[in-house]
Design a protein around this nucleic acid. Sequence first.
DNA 1: TGCAATATTAACCATTTGGTTAAACCGGAT
DNA 2: ATCCGGTTTAACCAAATGGTTAATATTGCA
Lengths: 200, 200
Amino acid sequence: MVREATTEQRILEAARKVFTRKGMAGARMQEVADEAGINKALLHYYFRNKEQLFVGVFKGSAEKQFSCIWDSLKQCDSLFPAIETFVSGYMDRMIEEPHLPLFIANEMNRDPDGLADFIDRGKESRARFLRLVEEAHTRGEIVDIDPRELLVNIMALCVHPFIARPMLKHIHGFTDEAFRRMIFKRKKTVPEFIIRSIRS
Amino acid sequence: MVREATTEQRILEAARKVFTRKGMAGARMQEVADEAGINKALLHYYFRNKEQLFVGVFKGSAEKQFSCIWDSLKQCDSLFPAIETFVSGYMDRMIEEPHLPLFIANEMNRDPDGLADFIDRGKESRARFLRLVEEAHTRGEIVDIDPRELLVNIMALCVHPFIARPMLKHIHGFTDEAFRRMIFKRKKTVPEFIIRSIRS
DNA sequence: TGCAATATTAACCATTTGGTTAAACCGGAT
DNA sequence: ATCCGGTTTAACCAAATGGTTAATATTGCA
């Protein structure tokens, strides 16, 4: 029952694999073509050039990443469950595509202005989360903390293991499976760590 | 009174600038030569090829980074001051070279096995820190937490702003100066955030 | 001074790589 | 069957890029 993908989809999927692993600078058009099982010229038939293909990949990946993360918050209307949901959803997403955070960070660093538009997805949910923090503080549930700073801290605790994965694997001698287990453990311990810190 | 640097040092310094900004894949030998103000062939005179030059840069940068961070801990013999010292030292170091964390993460991701040796610097200090955590827990000063997980959390909170810098700058509309101010603020708030969470 | 070793350069080379072109393929409408 | 548009490919091209070479400049020293 698998609808066979269109050529354009096959290309985008192959490009996603190659670009997220090697980055824009390290990726080779020939490698994308091989991965997709097509002739290199077809890449230029569907996407004018490497830049266009890259943008197609980055846009899709970044928007999916951020919408996934933020949309999970829509049901939450109190802070602590929101934090739990956010962390859990974020980590689930990154387990699916462990290379994505580093890829996005990297390319944003290379071309901040050109790519800025693609990371705006989920702005409303983000604003809503910041409001949840303020309200929780008003109700005296949490200590006084800059909501944006709290958000940075939460994202830091979620993302960092995936950014530092090769180093963690080397220092701790993690296998892929052990790394996965650590992430699963963190789905519980990270929200606990955060909430212990801010609960008043 | 500035001792004029040797050509090899000039090359390494130029290469450091280019490599840390563009990465191994994105860096161009010609650009390094231009940055150093010398002929491209000289690069191959002092360093056999791009890979060797890259290794020279990475080794120096990574070892300086990690030794800086860990050596700052040597005087501390209780946990909370150690955390304050660690965070403060880490951030000072990264303000000097904001691109380094992403560079290291990126290249470790590209060639984990080949570069693993260069990130081992400071192993003893690291072990000592883990012991400090255990002792603090034994004395009942902190809650029960996996010391390695605590360390990951601390590093996450230090490093993440530099990894996500372009995104933070875009979302929060930070200028370079505003970003610096945020980091300086975090030198105080991050240790507070951590200690609030683990103090029992 | 002059010579030998080292340092530096301009010119060049081979390969890689993004991109183009013209021809072939293929499915559907006439 | 045949024509036609969109699709796919093999072959090709020019620029970029890492690397080499042979000649020149510089330095230290006998």
